[in-house]
């Protein structure tokens, strides 16, 4: 049923630390791997070794340059996947009931056997979180690794989304954002976690931690200056040698 639940028992989601992310794309690869080898239609590639490769990804890492009014520009790596919105427009637009939000944990999922591949849910998503798989003809999206987090066959430390498990920088956190005492909620409160495009009214569950303020360098210091200064030695053996060679 594509009506949204009034409220969900838990709000499972991710907290992504834009200060820590190093832009290595390991989460992209582990996501593609896990979600191709496990639940649902595999994430296909088209022309993977040819001139125009493309493919389905549930998680992509953008990089942005931010230029403050004063000081040097900052480079910020920006992983983006489904934000499992509380007011998910992708769910209500679905004509078949394939798209739904779970009452028990708030995860937004697609029942692939009901999906007709009309693409309207992807149109309604402001974040580009949904991609229609060109091979399977059905909509793919982040499942928050629903087949890992409740999977008793996995060791306990692996029962978190694949991207979180993989991140070498510890930039991705998983937990219940509906519980104000959870680690992730504490982190969001402490670091001023933010919503993406709040004006779209989607009420995303996933939060982004903004980069911490940078150290300020001494005014007008050119960090290349020591390297650019001419090498000049006027005394000692090298000084004599320099002068001697100059005269030749």
């Amino acid at each position: 049923m594509t009506q949204l639940p009034e409220q969900t028992e838990r709000k499972l989601g991710l907290v992504i630390d834009l200060d820590t992310c190093v832009g290595c794309h390991a989460c992209v690869i582990s996501c593609k791997g896990w979600n191709t080898e496990n639940y649902g239609a595999p994430l296909s590639d088209q022309d993977p070794y040819g001139a125009d490769p493309s493919g389905t990804f549930l998680n992509r890492v953008h990089s942005y340059e931010v230029q403050p009014e004063a000081g040097p520009a900052q480079l910020i790596h920006f992983p983006k996947s489904c934000l499992h919105c509380e007011d998910a427009p992708c769910v209500t637009v679905c004509p078949t009931g394939a798209s739904y939000k779970r009452v028990e944990d708030g995860i937004v999922l697609v029942n692939e056997s009901d999906c007709i591949g009309c693409g309207l849910c992807a149109w309604s998503c402001p974040y580009g979180a949904r991609e229609l798989d060109a091979a399977a003809g059905v909509m793919k999206k982040c499942t928050l690794c629903v087949d890992r987090i409740y999977n008793d066959n996995l060791p306990e430390e692996d029962r978190i989304p694949s991207c979180v498990r993989t991140c070498p920088a510890g930039a991705r956190h998983f937990g219940d954002l509906g519980d104000p005492d959870s680690d992730v909620s504490q982190l969001v409160a402490e670091r001023g976690g933010m919503d993406l495009m709040p004006e779209q009214g989607t009420k995303p569950v996933n939060k982004y931690l903004p980069p911490r303020p940078k150290d300020t360098l001494n005014d007008e210091t050119n960090i290349l200056a020591p390297l650019l200064a001419p090498v000049e030695q006027t005394d000692g053996f090298l000084g004599w040698l320099d002068k001697a060679l100059e005269k030749l």
Partner: peptide, 8 residues
């Protein structure tokens, strides 16, 4: 979209 507008 990025939430980074407060920086620059």
């Amino acid at each position: 979209a990025t939430g980074l507008g407060s920086i620059g």
